[in-house]
Design a protein around this nucleic acid. Structure first.
Lengths: 190, 190, 190, 190
DNA sequence: AATGAATGAGAGTTCATTCAT
DNA sequence: AATGAATGAACTCTCATTCAT
């Protein structure tokens, strides 16, 4: 009996996912340019040629990995979607940020490597904005409500802080005490 | 008749500088692996072969660029060298950071793009540590003296914050209010 | 549909052989350093890149060519393996040497040209020793048994003579009378 | 006072000689293709550019070194020029061969490396013949006079033996006992 | 759907040779 | 006569991509 359309799509999707996982893993160990399609294929357990059945190019593969990561990220941060952040939600949000950082280290490594490449950046800029804009809006509103002096600058600063922390954590996870860091951030930025 | 020693030194220095500038510029536009020696040579207006008269390898070229940058940086931050930071010096230090960021914007733009690439990190990790370690020590002592709870985490966090701010400022200078940002940082981290 | 295992093996073996043949031929005409991978590929009728699908480096290619030749050679000379040479076997051995020289003239021509190049020597010295050592031991024993004055020097000299003869024969086969030469060698060295 | 024409020629010749010596020394350590003009110049204590004032090309330099070596060789072997070899002269000749071999090892190393390269060989073939032909004639006459069976084959064989010995001696000087070897050769070939 | 042989452009690097000084 | 900066062609090797099977 031939497989149903549905089954075919599922197989295809799971294959794609496993290729992306293999690639992400390798990208976290070596730089993007030193990871060859051959190597990714080998790690994914398929042939080089078949790769092109799933991704039209290496660039496309990277793009899809980054977009998938953003989606994961924005799903988690979707909170209660009312665009209003309570103090409790703020704490939860910081908590989540660090949780994601810890649990998806390889992704964030790739993310930084990729985002730092202006050419790739162009490819995913749109997606990035789509994720970040509502986040900045919500945060700015949060500080407005609290009546701080420059709510947008404050929001922007927190965003930058999280970037910086992520970067440093990725570069040297041992040197960071997550718990202490979280505590200080919440204290200072709530 | 051969050129004088003096002439040769001049030729060599100006050539080296122009190669490094060309390379730095290109590295800020594309990833290190995608910038070829050919391209650097072309932009520097010389032949590919001549590159190797000045730098023994691409790796060496990158190293020299980054080290030159670090040296500039650490010279500026040399403060009063006693390893003790007063509150006044702290403010001055934050001030200086932003001043450098603003005034050498294009340089730092290039600079971040280069340093953030994982391959470069490996090449210059040692140099980076040499610059950053005393900075972290001083900062940690500062927070110890103030009696805060986790002085090292606090220092590390401020370092990360400055990284993140620099990164975001470089990426989008318009979106940042330097004065407001400085004020908030000093308030929260002094 | 992918090729069968069998087909792949056949393709690989015939390609490898044709690359090695092309290379051997070219090495006999020019020095190893002046024969480029490009040239070998062109003569083998394949692309430069494909070379590296079969040999991991130029060095590896050379090694494999020389080892293949040595193996052919040592198979032929395996005598009766007891390590003892009778006078009759000695005569047979000289006979064989010349027979091989005559019958595989063109191969030995290529072969000498390759092996005599110092770079190759380094690559295959080990293999060469593996082949020559037992030969020298047997010969030395032979002269010991006969009670000659310096058996090792005698053995070494005969080895050198055969090298020299091969070389000169290869360079100018017309100028040599095999039968006369063989006769004199046997007379003097038995 | 300007130097005389004579002086200029002498200076030039001694410079050439020292360049050739430097080159010969290096060629004996590394293969011809891996010794660069730069390196030769450095070892000769002059600039790269000046090299071309003395030798029009690297090939020309090699050719001149080889020819100089041949000349040395044929001068030594010129014996009493009557074309007649006595037994005493024969012994002297073998003696001399080994003396040259020992004292000019680097030259012979180069010689073999060069002679094995068919392209270079063409350049010096004529010179080589000029040296070898009278040698073969004299030797053949020697054996004729002694009434041996095939005088030319005998001469040719001795020539080959000396080639083979030289080759092996160059490849592994330690492994050879010059005195024993000489003794056996004289015994068997006088 | 699946393979891996095959391609070809381009990477970093070296070096004999030239030439302005 | 002398220098070494400069060139450009050639080198070995890599890899994303294609395609016959």
């Amino acid at each position: 009996m031939p497989r149903t359309e549905q089954q075919l799509v599922e197989i295809r999707e799971s294959r794609k996912a496993s290729i992306m996982d293999a690639a992400l893993h390798l990208f976290s160990e070596q730089s993007i340019d030193t990871v060859s399609i051959s190597l990714i294929a080998k790690r994914a357990g398929i042939s080089k040629g078949l790769m092109y059945n799933y991704f039209t190019s290496k660039e496309e593969l990277i793009k899809e990995i980054v977009i998938r990561g953003f989606d994961d990220f924005s799903n988690i941060f979707d909170l209660n979607k009312d665009g209003i952040l309570t103090e409790e939600e703020f704490v939860y949000f910081i908590d989540q940020t660090f949780f994601i950082l810890e649990s998806k280290q390889s992704f964030w490594k790739l993310y930084f490597a990729v985002v730092m490449q202006p050419k790739v950046m162009k490819l995913v800029e749109e997606k990035l904005m789509e994720v970040l804009t509502p986040f900045m809006i919500t945060l700015t509103k949060y500080y407005e409500t609290k009546g701080v002096e420059s709510p947008f600058a404050q929001a922007r600063l927190l965003g930058s802080l999280l970037d910086g922390v992520s970067l440093n954590y990725i570069a040297d996870p041992q040197g960071f005490s997550i718990e202490e860091t979280k505590k200080i951030i919440i204290e200072k930025f709530i």
